[in-house]
């Protein structure tokens, strides 16, 4: 097992990997890829919806490529509320839970994709794509607020 460095010549993808703090770990044939970032507080519900929809799409994408979903999971935290979104290849579940109001601004979004038999660079591109969709959802939420 080792911290895995994916060879990518595309500088845009490298910069996005850094921006979303994406790190890959390999163990027993599993590719574990995790990333994290903070979005605007008002977008909690929109971000939750996008992650659930995208997890369902990633399930299908992995199955179509002959891979195995280990666990796709995400934790969203904003002041007063958290959400744990999870799937093991079939249905996507979401557990909302009240949290202490810590006064912080923004929604912390952590995502981990743990899969088998999918090339790491393809999975990284998929994770970056998910974070970009979250950015779009957040921007739409902001424009609605204005």
């Amino acid at each position: 097992m080792a911290d895995y460095k994916i060879k990518i010549r595309n500088s845009e993808q490298l910069s996005k990997r850094k921006s979303y703090q994406i790190v890959t770990t390999l163990h027993e044939g599993a590719v574990a890829m995790a990333g994290e970032t903070v979005f605007q507080e008002k977008s909690f519900r929109a971000l939750n919806t996008v992650i659930q929809e995208e997890f369902a799409a990633i399930n299908q994408w992995i199955a179509a490529r002959g891979g195995i979903v280990g666990h796709l999971k995400s934790f969203l935290a904003t002041t007063g509320q958290t959400a744990m979104i999870s799937t093991t290849g079939d249905q996507v579940s979401c557990r909302l839970q009240p949290a202490a109001a810590d006064g912080s601004n923004g929604v912390l979004v952590s995502i981990a994709l743990i899969v088998f038999a999918i090339p790491p660079n393809d999975l990284e591109a998929r994770l970056i794509d998910l974070f970009e969709q979250l950015e779009c959802a957040q921007k739409k939420g902001e424009s609605h607020d204005r």
Binding site: Q21, H27, A34, A77, A112
Partner: peptide, 9 residues
């Protein structure tokens, strides 16, 4: 297994 924790949160 991942660099960023989910369950710990």
């Amino acid at each position: 297994i991942g660099q960023i924790g989910i369950d710990d949160k």
